[in-house]
């Protein structure tokens, strides 16, 4: 894949940091505003998919390639499971909010969700990683087969 025209490349260069930041923002504030781990992860994956489409496979390899995406995928799901098990150990129930809800910050602030932001971030990484893997296997199918 050689990528697209210079216009697409330049616009990608301009907006991709903001897309990434926006995706993480959506995942991070999932307990305060509409959104959450899944939409945030989709946006993050969309950022990398945009870069891959605009610049081609080679350009994205140092940033977020297939292997790191699947590693992210697995690690994120494991950390989600760990949060659940930590709730089991400390909070008395699987996925219990063992960091007391509303403990560090006041209500309607960023740090008021207990373990919810952590879980949302884990879901965001999980979704981002797996969506990118899906995209990579489908769109770069030929390239992977030829290797």
């Amino acid at each position: 894949m050689t990528g697209m025209s210079p216009i697409v490349k330049t616009v990608t260069r301009w907006v991709s940091p903001f897309i990434l930041a926006f995706g993480i923002y959506i995942a991070l504030t999932g307990h305060l505003t509409p959104g959450g781990g899944f939409p945030g992860g989709v946006i993050v994956a969309g950022c990398f998919i945009l870069i891959t489409l605009a610049y081609g496979k080679e350009r994205v390899e140092g940033i977020f390639d297939l292997k790191s995406a699947s590693v992210t995928d697995s690690l994120a799901s494991l950390s989600f499971l760990c949060m659940g098990l930590l709730g089991y150990v400390f909070g008395g129930g699987f996925l219990n909010n063992f960091i007391q809800s509303g403990f560090p910050g006041k209500a309607f602030e960023l740090l008021s969700g207990g373990n919810m932001p952590i879980i949302n971030i884990a879901i965001g990484f999980k979704v981002g990683g797996s969506l990118f893997v899906v995209f990579a296997y489908l769109a770069l199918f030929r390239a992977i087969e030829e290797e």
């Binding site: 990608t12 260069r13 991709s16 940091p17 990434l20 930041a21 993480i24 923002y25 991070l28 870069i51 610049y55 350009r59 140092g62 940033i63 977020f64 910050g105 602030e109 960023l110 740090l111």
Partner: peptide, 22 residues
């Protein structure tokens, strides 16, 4: 909390996508 989170997110964004920047 929001400012620190923003700094972290921007740092991630810079490290990951800095290579593509101007």
């Amino acid at each position: 909390a929001m400012i620190i989170a923003g700094s972290l997110v921007s740092l991630v964004s810079g490290i990951v996508l800095g290579g593509l920047a101007t």
